[in-house]
């Protein structure tokens, strides 16, 4: 599951900044996109990504090398996201898609951006506990079993939350105009 080699992980645990850089470069997109789905805002997703990696660096001594690194990393990041969601006041997503010249290719691009924005806006209308599951499933491509491990809940609870979450997202997305 992990594509960061064991030698890199050993160096990372010893505080090697080059190994840490490799880990950031490998995972930053995934964590950032998880943040976008959880918080909706670009700035907040970037802050979240930064905090997530700093938390990982700070807690590197707690990682058990006998276990998959990616599971540990996603667990730390998910817990951080959950804490942040609990603390924060819900902020409406207002990242506006930039104005683009209406040319065939640009139009497709613009439509995609608008769709992405609607997805993030709709996610913000879904309860945080359901949003977390949707973000893990569709942001990190985790299966239900992996989600149960990372979220620390039973498989049955994951299934139930995901089913409700998808239904809630669908309704919110359609209310915003769907596609």
């Amino acid at each position: 599951m992990s594509s960061i080699g064991p030698e890199t992980l050993v160096r990372f645990q010893a505080g090697d900044m080059e190994a840490f850089r490799m880990i950031i470069e490998h995972y930053q997109e995934k964590i950032f996109r998880l943040g976008l789905r959880l918080f909706g805002q670009t700035d907040e997703a970037a802050d979240f990504t930064q905090d997530a990696f700093l938390r990982i660096f700070e807690q590197r001594g707690r990682y058990d090398p006998k276990r998959p690194f990616e599971n540990w990393l996603f667990k730390v990041v998910t817990n951080l996201g959950r804490d942040r969601l609990r603390r924060r006041r819900e902020i409406p997503t207002n990242d506006e898609p930039p104005e683009l010249a209406i040319e065939p290719q640009a139009e497709q691009e613009m439509l995609k951006r608008e769709r992405n924005l609607r997805v993030r806006q709709a996610l913000q209308k879904v309860k945080p506990k359901y949003r977390e599951g949707l973000a893990l499933r569709f942001g990190l491509d985790l299966n239900l079993q992996e989600m149960a491990q990372i979220q620390g809940i039973s498989l049955g609870t994951v299934k139930s939350r995901m089913s409700r979450g998808l239904k809630a997202f669908h309704r919110a997305y359609q209310a915003l105009g769907g596609e």
Binding site: A45, D95, E109, K112, N116, F138
Partner: peptide, 8 residues
């Protein structure tokens, strides 16, 4: 739409 990768 939810599965589609974000453009940002």
């Amino acid at each position: 739409a939810l599965s589609e990768g974000t453009d940002i």
